[in-house]
């Protein structure tokens, strides 16, 4: 083990690596629909009927090709969330998200999958809960770039109150 009275050399280094990822056939269709028409498109498995988002070529469970495209509504239910108190770096921008902030998983109505995103709500346990109804808020069309950030955030549907449940 290291002892305080001895010197150990360690050398700092920063490695900056650029990448460019191909979206491929299914994700390109999904992202162009989002960018150009403000629509959320998923795929439905011909066998198990699970509606999968993001859309993918093969149903992982049934090993069959997904060919049916399904437009999803922008409303759904918050399945889980967290109030983050750490200044997490956004790997897509290199900038930190300013804490505290809320993010969680929304299941759009009709989808089997969930979408993880920022929730535009006060970081207050009385203002956010599992089961909360919410909707997607998109960037205005002229600002959309064909990326998941075209969805700005999830926001609660108005007129709801946190139900009194067994949870705290």
């Amino acid at each position: 083990m290291a002892t305080k009275d001895k010197e150990w050399i360690s050398i700092p280094m920063t490695v900056d690596v650029p990448y460019r990822f191909a979206a491929g056939g299914y994700m390109t269709k999904c992202l162009t629909e989002l960018r150009d028409n403000g629509k959320i498109f998923a795929v439905e498995c011909p066998k198990c009927k699970r509606v999968q988002l993001p859309p993918r070529v093969v149903c992982a469970e049934c090993h069959v090709k997904n060919e049916k495209w399904v437009e999803l509504p922008h409303e759904g239910t918050l399945m889980n969330f967290t109030i983050m108190y750490l200044p997490l770096t956004d790997p897509t921008t290199g900038k930190p998200h300013e804490p505290p902030f809320v993010y969680g998983s929304v299941r759009l109505d009709g989808a089997t999958s969930v979408l993880d995103h920022m929730v535009e709500v006060e970081p207050d346990m009385d203002k956010v809960w599992v089961g909360m109804r919410c909707r997607l808020v998109l960037r205005p069309k002229e600002e959309r770039i064909g990326d998941l950030s075209d969805i700005r955030y999830i926001e609660p549907l108005p007129g709801q109150k946190k139900p009194q449940t067994k949870s705290r």
Partner: peptide, 10 residues
């Protein structure tokens, strides 16, 4: 990289 990475990091 294309779906949800902006909130990844820990």
């Amino acid at each position: 990289p294309l779906w949800g990475r902006s909130m990844a990091g820990a």
